[in-house]
Simulated assay, not measured.
Amino acid sequence: MTQGITIGQAAAFAGVTAKTIRHYHLHGLIEEPRRDSSGYRRYGSADLLRLVQVRTLAGAGIPLAEIRTILDADPDRFAAALVDVERRLTERIDDLVARRELLHQLADGDRVLLPEHACALLEKLPALGFTTEDVTTARDALVLVRALAPETLDGYVAQIEHGLEDPHYVSLMKLNMRAGDLDPDDPRVEEIAAAIADHFIADPSLLPSLSGLQAREDGALRRELLSHHAEDQKPAWARMTALIEAKLRAAGIDVP
C-alpha cells in the first residue's frame, strides 16, 4: 500500500503551491492528512481529489468561505450553488467590462469629462499657439462649467469659438495666460487687463457669458466659483479679473 505523497508533490500534481495547500487547511477546506514516522504529512488519492476540487472552484471565482458548503452539498444544492455563483460572476464580468470601457475613455483623454464639441475646441488651441499648460487650464475651466453650470456650456463654448476666429482676441488670451505667472503688482498685469477690457468693450459679444445661472437659487455662488477659478494658484489673475470687471462696468457693460 502506498505511503502517500508529500505536500510538495501534492502541490505539483494539483497545480498549486504548498503555501496554498496550507491555506486551504487553515480554512478547513482540506483535512490535514496523517503524518508518517518522520512527521511529514502524507497525502493520499482522496486528499488529492479534494485538493483539485477546491482549486477548481477557487479558480472559478468562488469565495473560499463558500467552497466547503458547496463541496459537501447534495447534488441539487451543489447545482443551485453553482448557478448562484455563475450569476455573481456574470455581474462581476459586467462590472469589469464597464470599468474597462471607462479606462478606454480615460485613455482617450478629455472625452470622459467633456462632450465632443468642447473637446474639439480644446484640440484647436495648440495650433493657435497655446501651450500644453494653457490647454489644461482651459480644459479645467470647461469641466467646472459643465459641473456647475451645464445649461450654459454650449453657449460658453460657442462664444469662445467665436473669439478664436479673431487673431487679436487670441493674442490677448495668450497674454492673459502668461499674466498668471506675473507678480500681481507687476505693471504688465494692469496693461494686459486694460487691453482685454478695451477689446470686450469694442465687441461685447466676445465676453464669455454664463447666462442662465441667475435662474438658480445658488447661481451667485456658482458664478463666483467659476469666475475666480485658479486665482489662488495665480494671484495675478485675481487682480486682472478685478481690473477688467471694473473697466467694463465703467463703460456701462453689465458684469454680474
Rank of each mutant, 00 (worst) to 15 (best):
G212L: 06
A194N: 07
D218T: 08
L172G: 10
S227Q: 12
V157G: 06
A197Q: 00
A147C: 08
A238Q: 04
A194R: 11
A193I: 04
R222Y: 12
A236K: 01
S227V: 14
V157Q: 04
E165F: 00
M173H: 06
A149G: 12
L182C: 09
A193K: 01
A179W: 01
L182Y: 13
L226N: 08
E151M: 14
P187G: 07
M173T: 07
S209G: 14
H229G: 01
I201R: 02
A215D: 15
L164N: 02
S205I: 02
A202S: 13
A147E: 13
T241N: 11
I196R: 00
L210M: 10
R223K: 05
Q214C: 12
R188E: 15
Q159C: 14
D183N: 12
T152S: 15
G155S: 04
V145Y: 09
L243E: 06
A158S: 13
P208H: 07
E165V: 09
L213W: 04
V157R: 02
A197R: 02
L243H: 00
R146Q: 11
D232L: 10
G219C: 07
A158V: 06
A242L: 06
L182I: 08
L207R: 10
D218H: 03
D154N: 11
D232K: 06
G163F: 05
G219S: 06
D218G: 07
R223F: 15
P167K: 00
L172W: 06
S171I: 02
L206H: 07
E224S: 12
I192V: 15
H162N: 06
V170D: 05
G180L: 01
H228F: 15
L225M: 14
L243N: 01
A158T: 14
A215E: 15
L210Q: 05
D198Q: 04
A147G: 11
V143D: 00
K234R: 13
I244Y: 00
D166S: 02
N176M: 14
L172V: 10
I192D: 03
V143S: 02
D183E: 14
S211A: 15
L210I: 09
E245R: 00
V145N: 03
D186V: 10
E217H: 09
P184I: 10
A220W: 10
H199T: 07
S227M: 13
L172P: 11
M173C: 08
A158F: 05
D232F: 04
S205V: 08
D218W: 05
D203V: 04
D183G: 04
L172T: 10
L243D: 05
R178A: 15
D166K: 00
S227E: 13
M173V: 05
A179N: 10
W237A: 01
R178V: 12
I244M: 03
L153K: 00
A149I: 04
S211P: 00
I196F: 01
P167R: 00
Q214P: 03
T152L: 03
R146P: 00
A215G: 14
E161M: 10
L207M: 15
D203H: 05
A242Q: 09
H168E: 15
E191N: 08
E151C: 07
E191K: 08
D181M: 10
P167W: 05
P150N: 07
L144G: 09
P204C: 04
K174G: 13
R178I: 09
L243A: 12
A215N: 11
H162V: 04
E161V: 14
R216I: 07
Y156F: 14
D185M: 06
P167H: 01
K234H: 13
